[in-house]
Amino acid sequence: MTHKPIEKVPNEDIAAEVQPEVGELTRNASRGKITATVLLTVATIFAGMLGPMQSAVNGQLGSYLGDGHAAAIVSFGAGLVLMFIIIAPRTKTRRAFLALPRHLANGTIPWWNFFAGLCGAVIVLSEGITVGALGVATFQTALISGMVVSGVLCDRLGIGVAFKQLLSTPRIVGAALAIIATILVVAPGYETPHVLALAILPFIAGLLAGWQPAGNSEVGRISDSMLVSITWNFLIGFVFLVVAFLLRAATSNVEFRLPDVWWLYLGGPLGLLSIALMALLVRGLGLLLLGLASTAGQLVGSIGIDGLIPAFGATIHMVTIVGTIVALIAAGIAMTPSRKIPKTPVGRAQ
């Protein structure tokens, strides 16, 4: 009985048949990744627009109450109540939150991490005081410019980051452009010195905001929950604002009242929604692209609110638009990674 020999398919033939399929799969995967990145970027831009919306609401709240300080208390109070509703029903988060004062007393982490909420309080306070006079675009540009400068300095000093980064030329240029952006957006108010003085508040708030994520991150680490960290952040800011208001009330004639318009309470919840969305989106985009897209959303949203909703904003000048574009460029340049500073041996100056 004879057996027919088995024909062997050359390796080259197999490769020729498989290669087109592999190439097609690779191209499909690449297209899918690009599509996902584009969709996530668009979502981040819209999430960034929540910042100007929060500023607009808090600015209107300040005008409604006639007191930016009282507006900040209402905004922080609304956010705090919402966070308590979220964490209180769960045993784990409730216990983690109640344990934070013990961590503070024991020095589990540096004490200043527990007071990062003061930065948020300053930002919301400056919204209630200045947005009505400055407009949303000017406020947001000054705030972002301060954050750009703060980010460059914090990276250099190693605040809230795993390693220090050198002050490279791009980062210095980015910080300088951020300052120029602030000057541009306040340019229409040169004839009114009080407007220029108001613009300093959001810029300083942006400078302080550099170490806020670092503190919140550390509190989130020891509590094993960013929800707990955010709640603590709101509590600290709220207590600070209330104590400061009581001191004002003891030395001057001030009055606190709650607004009777429901949407004026949305400032705090809008801030919380922005934080939650950013925490979700960063997983798919990474920090650099997330930062650029959210900054773009903040600036575009600011111009949109001022231009499309006159009751919420202010007059849009061409120099304001130029300033927001410069601020976006500054953020992009300043976010460029710089060379790491190597750790020096103990006992040797850095």
Rank of each mutant, 00 (worst) to 15 (best):
H3P: 05
E7I: 04
D13K: 13
V18A: 13
P20A: 03
L25M: 13
L25D: 00
N28K: 11
K33N: 13
V38A: 14
V38I: 15
L40V: 02
T44S: 15
I45F: 04
F46P: 00
A47K: 08
M49V: 02
G51C: 04
P52V: 14
P52G: 12
V57C: 07
G62L: 11
G68R: 04
A70N: 01
V74Y: 06
V74S: 03
F76Y: 12
F76A: 01
V81R: 06
I85K: 04
R90D: 11
T91K: 15
A105Q: 06
W111N: 00
W111F: 10
N113S: 10
L125Q: 01
G132E: 03
L134Q: 03
T138K: 03
I144T: 08
V152G: 00
L153C: 05
F163C: 09
K164A: 12
Q165K: 13
L166T: 03
L167Y: 02
P170G: 10
G174L: 01
L177M: 13
A178P: 11
I180V: 15
L184R: 08
G189D: 14
V195E: 12
L196A: 05
A199T: 02
I200T: 08
W211E: 04
S223Q: 08
M226E: 09
T231L: 02
T231H: 03
L241E: 00
A244G: 06
A244E: 12
A249T: 11
P259D: 06
V261F: 05
A276E: 09
A276S: 09
A279P: 03
L281S: 03
G286M: 07
L292R: 08
A296V: 11
L299S: 02
L299M: 07
G307P: 10
G307W: 09
P310C: 09
I316H: 06
M318D: 11
T320Y: 08
G323S: 12
I325M: 09
V326T: 15
I329F: 10
A331H: 06
P337G: 09
R339A: 08
R339C: 03
V346G: 01
